[in-house]
Amino acid sequence: MTHAHEDDAAGQALPGHLRSIQPTSQFAGDDGTADPELAALLAGHAAGTVPLRDVVARLAACRVLVPVLAELDVAEAVVVDGQELHVDKEASSGVVALQAPDGRRALPVFTSVATMRAWRESARPVPVEAARAALSAVSEDWSLLVVDPAGPVTVTVPRPAVWAMAQGRAWEPALVATQDGLVVDDEVLAAVRLAAEPVQHVVRVGAQPGRTAEVAVVLSIDAGLDRAGLDGVLRQVNARLGASDVVAERVDSLELRIAAAR
C-alpha cells in the first residue's frame, strides 16, 4: 500500500486518509463508547430481529475506530461468519487488514474502545467516519468491513454495502425478505436476465438466493450441447454478468446453476 504519511500527536506516522484526529476535530469530545442506537441494532441483528440493511444504514452515520498496531502478529486470526480471517502481515503503517480464505481482504473497524481492546489490547484507536473508513477500504481494493471482530456482536459488511457507504449512498441489498423468505430483488433479477438471456442456447434465466454465493443464477440451456459448448455458454454468461453495472453494484457474489431445459 502507498499512503501519504503524517505524524499524529503521539508521534507515530499514519496513512493520510486514516490520520489520527486532533483534539480540535469533530471527535475531540469522543469518549470512545459505542453509538447507543448502533449497539441496539447490532444486538437486534444478533437476535435475528434486525436486518443487516438497518445496521449498515446506522453504521454509515457513525464514527468507527480503526486499529493501528505497532507490531503485527502474523499468526493471529479471528473467526467471522464461520471463516477464519488472518491478520494481513503486509499491511503498512500499522493499519491492518483481515484476509479471508478466498483471498478477499477486510478492514476491521470497531464501535468502541472496549470492543477494540477485546480484540487487541495494544491497538491504538483512530476515530474516523464510517463512510471514510469504507472509502479507504475501497481505495485499497479491500472488499469488506468487519465490525467488532472480537464481539460481542460481529458483523461483516459486504462489498456492495462498503461501496455504497464510500459513495454516500444507501445500500440496497440484492436479497429482500418476503413472507416466503429471501428472494432476489426485482432490479437485480432484471439485470441478470438482461445479461444472460441474449446468450445463444440459453432458454430461460432465473435467480435465487445462492448456496455458496449470495445469488445463484439459474440457467436452462438447450439440451444436446457437448461439454465444450456448455463451457462456452457459461463463459459468455459470466462475461456479460461481469459487465453489468447493476450486478457489480448490488451483488456480493454469484454462482451459476444449470437447470434442465423443458
Rank of each mutant, 00 (worst) to 15 (best):
R211N: 13
A123Q: 05
V87T: 10
R227L: 14
C62R: 12
Q12H: 11
M1I: 13
R120M: 01
A213R: 11
Q26E: 14
V188S: 03
A114G: 05
A46K: 05
A77V: 08
D88T: 08
V153H: 06
A213I: 05
A207Q: 03
E187Q: 15
G32D: 06
I258F: 02
P198W: 00
D222H: 10
A70K: 09
T111S: 11
P160H: 07
R53A: 15
V215D: 00
S143F: 08
A123N: 06
V162K: 15
A137R: 07
V56K: 06
A191Y: 00
A4E: 13
F110P: 02
K89R: 13
R235C: 00
Q12G: 06
D102F: 13
V50I: 15
F110I: 02
A177H: 12
G32V: 04
R240A: 04
L65Q: 13
P209L: 09
T33Q: 11
G224E: 04
A207Y: 03
G32K: 05
A196W: 01
L219C: 00
L72R: 15
L41E: 00
A106Q: 07
T178I: 13
A223E: 14
S143Y: 08
A9Q: 14
I258N: 03
P23R: 01
R211Y: 10
V78E: 00
A196H: 03
T24K: 09
R53W: 02
